[in-house]
Structure formats: C-alpha cells, structure tokens
C-alpha cells in the first residue's frame, strides 16, 4: 500500500461509482462492497436513516455474486493503480469457502476481507461475528480454502474484542479490520414504526468513532498482526487516533458519502502531521499512545 488509508466496504461501491470524483490511485486500497457466491438483491426500502452524526443502514448486502462482480467490475479495477480488497460473506461456512476459493484464482485481487459481522443478514452472518466458536470455524475453513491475504472484519458488539482478535490470529488471519457497523434501531415516533424496513440496522459515521477507537485499542494490544481501524473517520485527526492506539492502517467509510474525497484528504492530513512531528513514516506513529 502506498499509504495507510483505504475506503471501507459498502461505502465506495465497486470503484467506478466514485472514479470521476476521486483519483483511485491515491487510495491505500479500495475495499469493494460485500460479495457472496450467489447474486443477492438486498433488503426492502427504506434502507437507510440519517441519525445524529451517523447513518443507520440495513442495505442487506445486495451484490452481483462473485462471478458477476469479476465480470462486471474487475476489468475496470485492474486498469487502476489501487490494491483491490474483496469483502466476502456467506450464509453458511460452505458459502464462505466457495467464494474464498473462487477469488484465489482471480487476477488483481490483493486480499479478502472476511465479513463475519454484518448485522443486516438474518441467516447467520452476524452470528459468525459474535459467537466465538462459529467465528473460529468460518475463519479456519476460509484459511484452508485460500492462500490470499485474509482480513477478518470484526463485529463491535462482543463482550471481549480481544478474544475475537486472538482467535482470528490463531486461525492464520494476516490482519484484522474493525469495527463493522454497530447494531442499532431508530423509531419514527409518529407512526411508532422502525425507520428501516429491516427494523434494525447498523450504525456508522462519526457517532461511533470513539467506540471504534476503544475497540481498536483493545484489539491491537491483543495481537501481533496488523489492525485496520474503521469507524466514523471524517478528518485526519480521526484517523490519527486509530494509528496512535495501534492500528497500522485505517479505512474511511460513511464520510465518503458526505465528501467523496475524504480519504485523500486524510492521507494529506496524516502526511502533514508526520512532518510536524518529525516522523519519517506512519510506522513511527503506530501504537505510540501514552496513557499512564
């Protein structure tokens, strides 16, 4: 990666959507929207609701399927000088394995982010992210299925994130990303109905940033593999917090909707910060948190 700032899965489409507005070659990596083996339509409307400094969503992981994605989007992505990380998910362990095996042979895929934590899929994905035994099972299976770089994406709603981080490391994960969106609910008080068709959704945006910083700190102290900090980054300072508590990289999510070039601005802001503090590289900053 030429810089530590990626764009997070589900917030940047598959690349072409933002290519007219953002120079993709300036991104550390592009994590595409979640891909399953079978094409998926996703949830009914409404799928999102704006909340205070946040966005509640239950999109339902619509995607063209692994083969559809490769056919429709990989030719475009291969033309751009940006590492492509494919976010994969399934409803069963077998589905995860199938999609992971498939991407092993696809040119231009730098890594797989394993989504075990999307709160909006009813038949299991969230359970993989919050049940330690299932979590181990799916990661062991995916690890056996591919030699690609594997990055499990952790759920925030667990009692001890360090346990999941350690389990992922023990399963042979190459890095970790966290956090996924936070399970949440918004109610329309006039109708007394949920604001989302899916009833509950996942909260993202600046509202969850401090929560994510705490979890990244906890996870980063528990493992030796690199951690990617995600959650509510809108400014360079937000990203720096993640790096300081131990993340080696970060991903910008919802803020790309607000300001498409947020990730590029974060890259520039981190560079300014490193210069101001006479640091030669991001590496010099990672994990320099002072708290005693």
């Amino acid at each position: 990666m030429k810089n530590p700032v990626m764009v997070a899965s589900g917030t940047f489409g598959y690349g072409p959507e933002y290519a007219e507005l953002v120079d993709l070659s300036q991104l550390g990596a592009l994590v595409v929207k979640g891909i399953a083996w079978e094409p998926t339509r996703g949830n009914e409307n409404p799928r999102t609701a704006e909340t205070a400094s946040g966005l509640l969503n239950a999109i339902g992981l619509p995607n063209p399927g692994a083969e559809g994605f490769v056919r429709e989007y990989m030719p475009f992505l291969r033309q751009h000088d940006v590492p492509v990380i494919v976010n994969i998910w399934g409803r069963t362990v077998e589905e995860y394995v199938r999609v992971a095996e498939y991407f092993e042979g696809i040119e231009g895929v730098a890594a797989l982010e394993v989504n075990v934590s999307c709160p909006n899929i009813k038949e299991g994905s969230a359970v993989f992210g919050t049940d330690l035994d299932l979590f181990r099972r799916v990661l062991d299976a995916v690890r056996s299925a591919t030699a690609l770089t594997l990055i499990p994406k952790l759920a925030p709603n667990v009692a001890a994130i360090a346990d999941f981080a350690k389990a992922a490391e023990a399963s042979g994960a190459d890095a970790l990303s966290l956090i996924n969106s936070v399970p949440a609910l918004a109610v329309d008080v006039e109708t007394r109905r949920p604001k989302l068709a899916n009833v509950t959704g996942g909260l993202t945006g600046p509202a969850i940033h401090p929560l994510a910083v705490k979890l990244v700190w906890d996870a980063a102290r528990a493992v030796r593999i690199p951690v990617i900090g995600i959650g509510g980054i809108a400014t360079p300072e937000d990203a720096l917090e993640f790096l300081i508590v131990g993340a080696h990289a970060v991903a910008v999510g919802t803020a790309s909707f607000t300001e498409p070039r947020t990730a590029v601005r974060v890259v520039e802001g981190i560079d300014d910060y490193l210069q101001r503090h006479n640091m030669a590289s991001v590496q010099a900053l990672v994990g320099t948190f002072q708290c005693n």
Partner: peptide, 16 residues
C-alpha cells in the same frame, strides 16, 4: 423522489 445517500450509485439507498 427517493431518500438518497451518496447520489452516485454506491450506497444503494435510493433503489426502486
């Protein structure tokens, strides 16, 4: 007229 998120086709909020 749909509730809209990103406006550029990435977030899939405004689907019909």
């Amino acid at each position: 007229d749909r509730n809209m998120g990103c406006g550029v086709g990435a977030c899939l909020t405004c689907v019909l």
